[in-house]
Amino acid sequence: MEAVRVAGVSKVFNQGAVNQVDALVDIDLDVRKGEFVSLIGPSGCGKSTLLRLIADLIQPTTGEVTVNGKTAHQARLDQDYGMAFQQSGLFDWRTVERNIELPLELKGWDKPKRRARSAEMLTLVKLTEFSQHMPWQLSGGMQQRVAIARALAAHPELLLMDEPFGALDEMTREHMQAELLRICRETGTTVVFVTHSIPEAVYLADRVVVMSPRPGRITATVDVGLGRDRNELTREATEFYDRVTEVREALRGTHVGDVVAGLEDR
Protein backbone atom coordinates (compact mmCIF):
# COMPACT_ATOMS: atom_id res chain seq x y z
CA MET A 1 0.00 0.00 0.00
CA GLU A 2 1.25 3.47 -0.90
CA ALA A 3 1.69 6.09 1.81
CA VAL A 4 0.24 8.72 -0.53
CA ARG A 5 -1.68 8.19 -3.76
CA VAL A 6 -2.75 11.16 -5.86
CA ALA A 7 -4.78 10.01 -8.86
CA GLY A 8 -6.04 12.20 -11.69
CA VAL A 9 -6.21 15.26 -9.46
CA SER A 10 -6.88 18.77 -10.70
CA LYS A 11 -7.61 21.91 -8.75
CA VAL A 12 -9.35 25.00 -10.10
CA PHE A 13 -9.60 28.14 -7.98
CA ASN A 14 -12.48 30.60 -8.53
CA GLN A 15 -14.17 28.23 -10.97
CA GLY A 16 -16.36 30.04 -13.50
CA ALA A 17 -15.19 33.48 -12.40
CA VAL A 18 -13.07 35.86 -14.51
CA ASN A 19 -10.09 35.18 -12.29
CA GLN A 20 -10.37 31.39 -12.67
CA VAL A 21 -7.00 29.68 -12.20
CA ASP A 22 -6.11 26.12 -13.11
CA ALA A 23 -3.74 25.54 -10.21
CA LEU A 24 -3.18 21.84 -10.89
CA VAL A 25 -4.01 19.64 -13.87
CA ASP A 26 -3.87 15.85 -14.16
CA ILE A 27 -1.64 15.12 -11.23
CA ASP A 28 -0.68 11.50 -10.59
CA LEU A 29 1.78 10.86 -7.79
CA ASP A 30 2.47 7.82 -5.65
CA VAL A 31 4.73 7.97 -2.62
CA ARG A 32 5.94 4.67 -1.17
CA LYS A 33 6.13 4.06 2.54
CA GLY A 34 9.41 5.37 3.93
CA GLU A 35 10.16 7.31 0.76
CA PHE A 36 11.39 10.93 0.79
CA VAL A 37 9.90 12.92 -2.10
CA SER A 38 10.79 16.54 -2.88
CA LEU A 39 8.39 18.70 -4.87
CA ILE A 40 10.23 21.43 -6.74
CA GLY A 41 9.20 24.07 -9.23
CA PRO A 42 8.99 27.82 -9.80
CA SER A 43 6.54 29.97 -7.84
CA GLY A 44 2.96 29.38 -8.93
CA CYS A 45 3.51 25.79 -10.09
CA GLY A 46 1.09 24.50 -7.45
CA LYS A 47 3.53 22.54 -5.31
CA SER A 48 2.13 23.96 -2.08
CA THR A 49 -1.40 23.44 -3.40
CA LEU A 50 -0.54 19.79 -3.99
CA LEU A 51 0.80 19.48 -0.44
CA ARG A 52 -2.38 21.07 0.95
CA LEU A 53 -4.50 18.67 -1.08
CA ILE A 54 -2.65 15.73 0.47
CA ALA A 55 -3.17 17.35 3.90
CA ASP A 56 -6.92 17.80 3.17
CA LEU A 57 -6.61 21.52 3.92
CA ILE A 58 -8.19 22.06 0.50
CA GLN A 59 -10.22 19.65 -1.64
CA PRO A 60 -9.47 18.63 -5.24
CA THR A 61 -11.81 19.75 -8.03
CA THR A 62 -11.51 16.34 -9.65
CA GLY A 63 -9.60 13.16 -8.84
CA GLU A 64 -8.77 11.40 -5.60
CA VAL A 65 -6.20 11.68 -2.83
CA THR A 66 -5.62 8.74 -0.49
CA VAL A 67 -3.27 8.63 2.49
CA ASN A 68 -2.45 5.24 4.03
CA GLY A 69 -5.28 3.75 1.98
CA LYS A 70 -7.87 6.14 3.47
CA THR A 71 -9.39 9.29 2.05
CA ALA A 72 -7.27 12.35 2.78
CA HIS A 73 -10.13 13.65 4.94
CA GLN A 74 -10.19 10.54 7.13
CA ALA A 75 -6.39 10.62 7.38
CA ARG A 76 -6.53 14.18 8.66
CA LEU A 77 -9.18 13.32 11.24
CA ASP A 78 -6.99 10.40 12.37
CA GLN A 79 -3.91 12.67 12.55
CA ASP A 80 -2.10 10.29 10.19
CA TYR A 81 0.33 13.01 9.14
CA GLY A 82 2.35 15.75 10.78
CA MET A 83 2.90 19.09 9.11
CA ALA A 84 5.60 21.78 9.21
CA PHE A 85 5.49 25.14 7.46
CA GLN A 86 7.96 27.87 6.52
CA GLN A 87 6.90 29.80 9.61
CA SER A 88 7.42 27.55 12.60
CA GLY A 89 3.93 28.54 13.82
CA LEU A 90 4.86 27.89 17.44
CA PHE A 91 2.50 29.29 20.06
CA ASP A 92 4.25 32.17 21.84
CA TRP A 93 2.51 31.55 25.15
CA ARG A 94 3.50 27.89 25.42
CA THR A 95 6.86 26.53 26.49
CA VAL A 96 8.82 24.49 23.95
CA GLU A 97 7.69 21.35 25.73
CA ARG A 98 4.00 22.29 25.65
CA ASN A 99 4.23 23.31 21.99
CA ILE A 100 5.42 19.82 21.15
CA GLU A 101 2.58 18.35 23.22
CA LEU A 102 -0.12 20.22 21.29
CA PRO A 103 -1.00 17.39 18.84
CA LEU A 104 -1.04 14.94 21.76
CA GLU A 105 -3.42 17.15 23.74
CA LEU A 106 -5.77 17.17 20.77
CA LYS A 107 -5.56 13.39 20.68
CA GLY A 108 -6.59 13.31 24.33
CA TRP A 109 -3.39 11.86 25.81
CA ASP A 110 -2.94 12.26 29.57
CA LYS A 111 -0.20 14.45 30.99
CA PRO A 112 2.43 11.87 32.03
CA LYS A 113 2.24 10.23 28.58
CA ARG A 114 2.55 13.64 26.89
CA ARG A 115 5.56 14.58 29.05
CA ALA A 116 7.30 11.32 28.22
CA ARG A 117 6.74 11.78 24.49
CA SER A 118 7.82 15.43 24.43
CA ALA A 119 11.01 14.46 26.30
CA GLU A 120 11.61 11.79 23.65
CA MET A 121 11.05 14.31 20.82
CA LEU A 122 13.32 16.88 22.48
CA THR A 123 16.10 14.30 22.57
CA LEU A 124 15.46 13.55 18.89
CA VAL A 125 15.87 17.20 17.87
CA LYS A 126 18.64 17.74 20.47
CA LEU A 127 16.89 20.48 22.42
CA THR A 128 16.43 18.73 25.78
CA GLU A 129 17.84 21.61 27.84
CA PHE A 130 15.41 24.07 26.22
CA SER A 131 12.17 22.31 27.21
CA GLN A 132 11.10 25.15 29.52
CA HIS A 133 12.11 28.01 27.20
CA MET A 134 9.55 30.11 25.41
CA PRO A 135 9.70 29.91 21.58
CA TRP A 136 10.61 33.60 21.26
CA GLN A 137 13.75 32.94 23.29
CA LEU A 138 15.08 30.54 20.62
CA SER A 139 16.89 31.12 17.32
CA GLY A 140 15.08 30.55 14.00
CA GLY A 141 16.77 27.18 13.46
CA MET A 142 15.87 25.98 16.96
CA GLN A 143 12.27 27.11 16.49
CA GLN A 144 12.09 25.11 13.27
CA ARG A 145 13.46 22.04 15.09
CA VAL A 146 10.71 22.45 17.70
CA ALA A 147 8.16 22.65 14.87
CA ILE A 148 9.52 19.41 13.42
CA ALA A 149 9.39 17.79 16.85
CA ARG A 150 5.77 18.90 17.14
CA ALA A 151 4.96 17.51 13.69
CA LEU A 152 6.49 14.16 14.67
CA ALA A 153 5.18 14.06 18.25
CA ALA A 154 2.28 11.73 17.53
CA HIS A 155 4.64 9.43 15.56
CA PRO A 156 2.85 9.96 12.26
CA GLU A 157 4.01 7.78 9.39
CA LEU A 158 3.82 10.74 7.03
CA LEU A 159 5.43 14.15 7.33
CA LEU A 160 4.30 17.01 5.06
CA MET A 161 6.72 19.93 4.89
CA ASP A 162 6.24 23.23 3.08
CA GLU A 163 9.60 25.00 2.69
CA PRO A 164 10.35 24.46 6.37
CA PHE A 165 13.93 25.77 6.03
CA GLY A 166 13.08 28.61 3.65
CA ALA A 167 13.62 31.33 6.23
CA LEU A 168 16.93 30.02 7.57
CA ASP A 169 20.46 31.07 6.68
CA GLU A 170 22.53 28.72 4.50
CA MET A 171 24.63 27.19 7.30
CA THR A 172 21.67 26.52 9.57
CA ARG A 173 19.79 25.23 6.60
CA GLU A 174 22.38 22.58 5.69
CA HIS A 175 22.61 21.56 9.31
CA MET A 176 18.81 21.22 9.52
CA GLN A 177 18.75 19.12 6.33
CA ALA A 178 21.22 16.67 7.82
CA GLU A 179 19.19 16.58 11.04
CA LEU A 180 15.98 15.92 9.13
CA LEU A 181 17.57 13.01 7.24
CA ARG A 182 18.85 11.53 10.51
CA ILE A 183 15.41 11.86 12.13
CA CYS A 184 13.69 10.26 9.14
CA ARG A 185 16.15 7.36 9.18
CA GLU A 186 15.59 6.84 12.89
CA THR A 187 11.80 6.99 12.65
CA GLY A 188 11.19 5.53 9.17
CA THR A 189 8.90 8.47 8.34
CA THR A 190 7.62 9.07 4.81
CA VAL A 191 8.17 12.69 3.76
CA VAL A 192 6.70 14.95 1.10
CA PHE A 193 8.89 18.06 1.04
CA VAL A 194 8.14 21.25 -0.89
CA THR A 195 11.14 23.43 -1.73
CA HIS A 196 12.45 25.74 -4.40
CA SER A 197 16.09 25.00 -3.72
CA ILE A 198 17.57 22.47 -6.17
CA PRO A 199 20.47 21.27 -3.94
CA GLU A 200 18.09 20.93 -1.00
CA ALA A 201 15.67 18.85 -3.05
CA VAL A 202 18.44 16.56 -4.31
CA TYR A 203 20.28 16.22 -0.99
CA LEU A 204 17.16 15.20 0.91
CA ALA A 205 15.08 13.17 -1.51
CA ASP A 206 14.95 9.67 -2.90
CA ARG A 207 12.93 11.15 -5.74
CA VAL A 208 12.58 14.74 -6.96
CA VAL A 209 9.27 15.64 -8.60
CA VAL A 210 9.63 18.63 -10.95
CA MET A 211 6.57 20.80 -11.55
CA SER A 212 5.75 23.65 -13.93
CA PRO A 213 3.18 26.46 -13.74
CA ARG A 214 0.06 27.50 -15.73
CA PRO A 215 -1.40 25.04 -15.48
CA GLY A 216 0.44 23.39 -12.58
CA ARG A 217 1.54 19.91 -13.59
CA ILE A 218 4.30 17.37 -13.08
CA THR A 219 6.84 17.58 -15.91
CA ALA A 220 9.60 15.24 -14.75
CA THR A 221 10.65 12.87 -12.01
CA VAL A 222 14.32 12.44 -11.11
CA ASP A 223 15.44 9.37 -9.14
CA VAL A 224 18.30 10.60 -6.97
CA GLY A 225 19.85 7.24 -6.09
CA LEU A 226 22.49 8.55 -3.70
CA GLY A 227 21.71 5.86 -1.16
CA ARG A 228 20.43 6.54 2.33
CA ASP A 229 23.68 7.28 4.12
CA ARG A 230 24.23 10.88 3.17
CA ASN A 231 26.54 13.30 4.91
CA GLU A 232 28.43 16.51 4.23
CA LEU A 233 30.64 14.67 1.69
CA THR A 234 27.54 13.82 -0.34
CA ARG A 235 27.20 17.51 -1.15
CA GLU A 236 30.61 17.39 -2.84
CA ALA A 237 30.17 14.10 -4.71
CA THR A 238 30.07 13.98 -8.50
CA GLU A 239 26.76 12.04 -8.48
CA PHE A 240 25.24 14.80 -6.40
CA TYR A 241 26.22 17.40 -8.99
CA ASP A 242 24.95 15.16 -11.79
CA ARG A 243 21.53 14.94 -10.12
CA VAL A 244 21.48 18.68 -9.46
CA THR A 245 22.21 19.29 -13.12
CA GLU A 246 19.50 16.84 -14.15
CA VAL A 247 16.90 18.61 -11.98
CA ARG A 248 18.08 22.02 -13.21
CA GLU A 249 17.64 20.95 -16.82
CA ALA A 250 14.22 19.53 -16.09
CA LEU A 251 13.27 22.86 -14.53
CA ARG A 252 14.66 24.82 -17.47
CA GLY A 253 11.93 23.34 -19.65
CA THR A 254 9.32 24.94 -17.39
CA HIS A 255 8.12 28.51 -17.72
CA VAL A 256 9.64 30.72 -15.11
CA GLY A 257 8.36 34.19 -14.37
CA ASP A 258 5.20 36.09 -15.21
CA VAL A 259 3.27 34.31 -12.52
CA VAL A 260 -0.38 35.11 -11.88
CA ALA A 261 -0.35 37.70 -9.12
CA GLY A 262 -1.51 36.49 -5.74
CA LEU A 263 -1.18 32.84 -6.61
CA GLU A 264 2.49 32.23 -5.93
CA ASP A 265 2.94 28.87 -4.31
CA ARG A 266 -0.75 28.04 -4.45
Binding site: L57, R76, L77, Y81, F85, G89, P103, L106
Partner: peptide, 14 residues
Amino acid sequence: TPPASLELMESLAA
Protein backbone atom coordinates in the same frame (compact mmCIF):
# COMPACT_ATOMS: atom_id res chain seq x y z
CA THR B 1 -4.98 34.82 14.65
CA PRO B 2 -2.02 34.06 12.35
CA PRO B 3 -3.37 32.05 9.37
CA ALA B 4 -0.44 29.62 9.60
CA SER B 5 -1.43 28.71 13.16
CA LEU B 6 -5.05 28.24 12.12
CA GLU B 7 -3.91 25.97 9.30
CA LEU B 8 -1.86 23.97 11.80
CA MET B 9 -4.91 23.47 14.04
CA GLU B 10 -6.91 22.44 10.98
CA SER B 11 -4.25 19.92 9.99
CA LEU B 12 -4.59 18.51 13.51
CA ALA B 13 -8.36 18.20 12.95
CA ALA B 14 -9.06 20.42 15.97
